[in-house]
Structures are given as structure tokens and as C-alpha cells.
Design a protein around this nucleic acid. Structure first.
Lengths: 198, 198, 198, 198
DNA sequence: GATGAATGAGTCTTCATTCAT
DNA sequence: TATGAATGAAGACTCATTCAT
């Protein structure tokens, strides 16, 4: 309970103000407990940071795992499947925006930077396998290299999430007002057909 | 001279170790000057950070400005034009990798965070105008909203640069070994045709 | 306790060596605590300076308030009353010599300078009201302006305290050896009758 | 020329902002010369401070010396003489207000503090001799001790100057608007006759 | 006489962490 | 479990002074 409370406060502050700009004294003040109490639940500031990444990573990878392609299908089935997966990811990001912000923009502390990086590599790897499977099933052309495709796709996803949830975003843009579902639709369209697509 | 030297050392350290993990004493030690010398050239640590962003922003926007679409043309001309622009941007990123890293992943200090954000918004805006022009000229379909397109495109560019120059990147990926030109070709292909494209 | 200890050490050092010549490290070394401990009790060096003035001011004004003239009386009663008041003030000054020195000669920091000034204005104002009352009661002639009288009187008091407790004083003078009572007697004589007086 | 300019700027800044709050860089900036130039004219910051006190002291003591009592006379002659002397001192103070402020309230640096103190002791000693002479000539009663009288008199003078030229002063007071002559008249009246006097 | 870049010791302040209660 | 006083290493910034030109 208390532990979860501290975690929640910490992610939010880390995301909003950055790791170094967040003092343990801020966290405990928000939680209404004494400074020492923090150290009953966490070994150190670094530890709480890693804990945040670790627990978020697990949940994020679970969401992605659920969307894995297993069987062949038509193009429209593939598009639908992708759209469902992206919607789930965007929903997860929305519900865990502070974790997501930390994951995508954080990493002031070396070990947290590393943990974030690993999580993002895992995510990219999951998408690579997904694309690989689809290519093997003949649903995607084999002309582009897999890593490149995965990198481009994850760039798209990460960039869209970042702009959707915590900028940078052009003031006139209505991107931030889209639902997860709408965002997924637009993203998937671009993913499969590019700027020239339908 | 001295000033440029300090700037160069600072960007590199800010990018490699982060803003907060970089001490003024590190910078001056690298430069072989006394601590006070730093303050002869810069008002504060924050000031040198902002200066780095400011000067990089100018040069980056210049590169983008050069690639502006002005006249109508065939699809392949458009693709070629985009490829040239991306290549220029990637080359700039390669030659200014520390600035780029700071721009894309940095921002521990509030004011630097803000300055980075503004620069990235400017970049997105530049691309939006470019897409807008191409749409008006009938070179791109008008079915997707402009801001969304620009966001997706810049996500692609930023994500690719980040993976190309400073990870996160899958260990088996050969992305990091591509030239700016090759990277531009792959990216442009995805940009216009998506995963299903040629 | 700790707080009071730090305050006591600080006043003494501020008075003896000046505000700027007193380092926080001096204060904590005297108190036998770590540097950080100082900042547990006080926000900053300036804050402890203001606190010293603030608390001394309250006590000083209380002493003066006690000596307020309320009823009419003979000249000798008035002289006696004045003498009692001055004795109290001198005793207070003696017991709070470091505060007094800071009040009368200190003020290197702008905000402390201002706080000291205000306290001294308050003191002068208190005396002005006292003289005003005595004039209304017909105990003092109305020929001299009130502010001038108060200024002269407080000049006398401040100057005498400064010389009595912390010089400048002529080496042959025995002023420093007088008791608060004797000093009050001499001062009051001058106050009422001047150099030509009895 | 340049030397005098630097001295004038230094005195003003020392008086207005305090010794420690005045940086050499402030002084040279005001004078429009380079930092190094200062050190061509003065050995150090302390040196210019001492120089200021030294030169002011000489001129101040000269003014006082001119007012020395030499011959016997009536009470009104004595009052007139005193008034002339005070007027001269007040005029000097007015023309040298920054020096005066430094002399009366300054002294953050140990050696400057000492030099100021000595000057003020000299001033007091001069007045003591003056009173002593008047007492010997039978112009003043012998009932009060000399040092005390001198201390009280100089307290009056210093306090009045301080309030006249640079506060602390009650906002409603018109003391600051008096001329040197008027101020001398009021002060002398109090000096000789006290609050009860004519 | 004058410049201004360079120096570096000195100081305030911060903040993660510890520990007796 | 919880407290909060205490710690002390670390780091940004200041500024009088020097010196080559």
C-alpha cells in the first residue's frame, strides 16, 4: 500500500520533473511520511527508479505478447490485428503515462538509462519477431531488412505515444485529442501504406 | 576558440553522461583550464546548455530549410527530393551527434528541456509545411490530416537517428553500419509506401 | 536547543567578525555539528541573520514599551522615570551585546541592513511618542520639534551603548566600567539639562 | 585623475552597498576601465578602503581643529562658537556623505574597521580637549566627567549626521530637509540645555 | 598606462543516506 | 513500521588578484 503509494508518486515526479530534479524529500512530503520511511521500503533512490522500470516493463511486454501474430490471414486481417495491438499499446501508455514518459525520455541515472534501453530493445525485438513471422507467412514482402522495419515501426509507435501523451507537439495539432483507437487507425494506415497509401 | 572548445566538451559530456552527471570541474579539466575560466565565457551551467541547443537549432533548421519543396513534380522526383533532404539531415545528425543526442534524449534541466522541445516542434512544423505544400500540389493524397502526417514522419526521422547514432538498438541489427544515404533510402521507402510498399 | 545554540554562536560571530567574515563552517564547527545540520534549522545564512534581528527587536521593543509615560508628574519624577527606562535598556543591551552590536553597526547584507533600520526606526518612534506624551502633559516645553528631539535622544542612547559595550572609546575613558545604572544617571542628566545643566 | 575617479566610485559603492557587496569589477565597470587597471592604482581592495578612510580622516580632523576654543567668553559666545563648529562639521559631512557613511556604519573588513574606529576616537578626543579647555576657563561646570561628556556630545553629532544624511529616520520626520545651519542650531540647543532647556 | 583573459581558493547550499528512538 | 534529526561529500559559483601583451 504505502510502497505502491511511494512508487506512484515517484514515477509521476520522475516523469514530470526528471530524476535528478526529484528529491526524496519531495516524494515523502507528497506521501505525507517521514524521510526515513522511504528507506524502509526502498534501498535507495536508484532502487525505486529501477523498480519502476522493471514493473512497467513486465506489463508492457505482456500487452505486446498478447498481440503476437500466429496464423496467416488476409491483408485486411493483418491490418486489423495490427490496429488492435497498437490500440492496446496506446491504451497501456495512456494508463501508465508516467512510466511511459520515464521509459521514453528518462534515463539520467546510468543504471536506469540502461534498464530503459533494454526494455525498448525488448519491445523492438518483439515487433521484429512479429514482422518476421508475417514475412514468413507471406503476408509482407521480403524486400526490406527486418531490423530496419522493426526500427521504423517502433520509432513510429514511440514517437506517436510521446506526442500524444506528453509532447513535443505543435500547438495547433489535435493529435492529443484522439482516442487510442483513432490513433491506432491512423498509425496503422501509415505503417502499411505510407504517405502515398490509401 | 576557448569558448568553442568548452562548448564542444560540454555537448559531448552532456550527451554521454547526462547534464546532471556532468560537473563543471569535468569540463574545465578536459579543457585544461581553471574552474573560473568557465565562468568567464558562460554565465552558468544552464547557460552553456541553452547555448548548445540554440546554436544547434539554428544549423539544424537551416539544413531542413534547404530541402523545402517548391515546385510540383512526379512521384519519383518527390521521393528523390525527400531522400536528399533526409540524407542531409542524417549527415547533420552524424556530424553533430552529441547535439542530436542532447536534443532527442536530453532535457534534465527545465529550461533546456523547454528549448529542446521548441526546436523539435519547429522541426515538425517545417515538415508539416513541406507536406502541406506537396498536398496542395497534388503530389500527396489529402486523406490524412497534416499534423498527424508530420508527427509520424518526424517520429520516423527522430527514431531512426536515435537508433542509428546512439541506440537503443538490437545487438544483431546492422542499422548502425548504414551510411546516411542508405538510411535515407530505407526511410523514404517506408515513408511513402509503408510496410506493404515496393 | 540546537537551534538556540546555533543562533547564539551566529550572533556572536556576526558581531565580532562581521556577517561576511563569518562562514557557516565556522558556526557549525563551534557548535560541533555537521554543515548540513545548519540547514536543517535555517534556510540560509541570510535567514539566520534576519531571525537574529527579528527576535532581538521584539525583546528590545518590549523593554521600551514597559517604560512608557502615562501620567503627569514633577520634573524629578520624570527624570527618575527616564532613568529607569534607560537603565532597563542599557541592561538589555548588556545582556544582548552581540545582538546590539549587530543592530547598531551591522548590516552588510541588504535585507539585514533593512531589518536593522526598521528596528531602529521603531525604537525612535517609541521615544518620540513618549516625548510627545510628556509634552502634552506639560512636562516638557513645546519649543523643539518632536522628531528632532527623538532623534537626538536616540542618538544619545545608541552612541552611549556603542561606546559602553564595544567602543570606539578613548583608551583613558572609564565609561566602559560604569554600571547600567550609573550610565543611565549620567545620560539622563545630559538628556534633560545639557552640558550647562546641574 | 583616474585614481581620484576610482576612489570616488569606490567610496560611493562602499557606502551604498557595503564593502563586501562591492566588487572590483563593479568599480572598474563604473569607471569604464579594465579590471587590471584598478591594480595599477591600488595595491588591493583593502588598500583603497584604507586610503578612503585616511584621506577623509585628515580633512575631517582639520575641520574640527579650526573650531578649537582658545579664549574665555560669555555663554552666548560659547554657544555661537559651538554652533559654528557643528555647522562646519555638518557641511563637511554633507559634502563627503559617502565617506561619512563609511566612517560611521562601515567596517566589514577588519583593518578598515580599525581605521574607522581610530578616526572616531580622534574626533572624540578633539571634542574632549575642547570641553576640557572650556571647563578650565570656567565656561562649563566641572561636575560631569570629561570623557562622558565627550562621548555624549559625539554620540549626538554622529547620530544626527547619520539620520540627516542616510537614515535610519522616521518617514514623517523633516530632519533630512534641514540645512546644516539649522541642524547645528537645534543640536547645540540640546547640547547645552537638554530637553528642558530654553 | 591599460587591457582582459585566466586563475583557484573559498563558500554557500543541496540532498541521498543513516540511525537512535 | 515510522520518525526526523544529523551527516558530509559534492558541486555550482564568486571574486580578488595576476600577468602576458
Amino acid at each position: 500500500m504505502r510502497r505502491e503509494q511511494l512508487l506512484a508518486i515517484a514515477v509521476e515526479r520522475f516523469a514530470k520533473h526528471g530524476y535528478h530534479n526529484t528529491k526524496i524529500s519531495d516524494i515523502v512530503a507528497d506521501a505525507g511520511v517521514a524521510q526515513g520511511t522511504f528507506y524502509w521500503y526502498f534501498k535507495s533512490k536508484e532502487a525505486i527508479g529501477l523498480e519502476i522500470i522493471r514493473s512497467g516493463r513486465e506489463r508492457l511486454l505482456q500487452v505486446i505478447a498478447k498481440g503476437y501474430r500466429s496464423q496467416s490471414g488476409s491483408v485486411s486481417e493483418m491490418v486489423e490485428g495490427s490496429q488492435r495491438l497498437l490500440k492496446d499499446i496506446f491504451q497501456f501508455a495512456d494508463e501508465n503515462r508516467y512510466f511511459m514518459e520515464l521509459l521514453l525520455t528518462g534515463g539520467e541515472d546510468e543504471s536506469i538509462r540502461r534498464a530503459s534501453k533494454e526494455t525498448r530493445i525488448d519491445m523492438e525485438e518483439a515487433f521484429r519477431r512479429n514482422i518476421e513471422r508475417a514475412t514468413e507467412l507471406g503476408m509482407l514482402p521480403g524486400s526490406m531488412n527486418l531490423h530496419m522495419r522493426a526500427a521504423l515501426l517502433v520509432s513510429l509507435i514511440e514517437g506517436v505515444i510521446a506526442r500524444w501523451l506528453f509532447g513535443p507537439i505543435h500547438p495547433n495539432s489535435d493529435l492529443a485529442r484522439l482516442t487510442a483507437e483513432e490513433l491506432a487507425a491512423e498509425t496503422v494506415r501509415f505503417e502499411f501504406f505510407g504517405l502515398l497509401g490509401i
